[in-house]
Amino acid sequence: MAVYKRGYQRYQGPLTSPASRLLVLPRFAWERLMQQRLISILFIVALFWPTGCALFIYLSHHLDLLQGMGGAATAKIFDINAEFFFIFMNAQATFAIILAAFAGPSLIAPDLSNGALPLYFSRPMSRSTYVLSRMLVLVGVLSPVTWIPGGLLFLMQSGMAGWDWFSANWHIGAAIVAGFFFWILLVSLVAMASSAYVRWRMIAGALVLGIFFILAGASELANAVLRVEWASAFNPTRATLQLWRALLGLEPFPGPDEYECFAALVLMIGLLAAILNRKLRPVEVVS
């Protein structure tokens, strides 16, 4: 029967499991994000660098294709090691920030600015589930430009270089996945907290970029003015890079070590979680 002809009937059938409901918001959000041309363009642009890296890995195993270039020098340039993957991660981290700045604020800001949170929280959905659902949206958006291409590049290199290379460098693969997951967590929380704080999409997007790029400048300024090095720990990008270098087994940057950087990042994550906890309430209570 046509839907307009049948009257309203109460639904009394089986319900879906609470775990499967966790993907409801991400599913609708991904669909909506992929309809935005800017996001699609950013997404494609963010895959240029991994494609270039894949080509680089391929060439490193087919140096005979580059016969015009000097043998030993070329081999050194095309050495695929932890430094290579660090450079790859560094570039993709920037794309992740830009994508999060454009995609992130549209997740929470509309709910807050339209007062829609009571609609969500009057359903079997807690605040933590809501945050997790929204975070899954960003995990879904950022994964294809971070750990997935990183992991594929690692597998590609492992496949071409053989078992010996893999057994000597498996930690690089683990570092790519763990490092990017930590980065996604940080970037997602920044994007969500920004949109929860300012509620206006454009400003929230600018704030996401500002937090990463202005904090970088501010920490360098603090280092220069106070003649210290510890302020670098409060530059989230720098602190994460230091952590990644430790995970990849590379020489650390000068300044705070990986433990200090990790502690600073955990502090930032705690602060962002506190902002979300403060802002994401179904009703605001004025004491």
Binding site: G13, F28, P118, Y120, M125
Partner: peptide, 22 residues
């Protein structure tokens, strides 16, 4: 409490699914 740039069908679908409807 309604999200201004969302259609009614879409909002209700989301709310229905969040309440446990397939």
């Amino acid at each position: 409490a309604l999200i201004a740039d969302m259609s009614a069908v879409r909002l209700l679908r989301i709310m229905g699914e969040l309440s446990g409807l397939p």
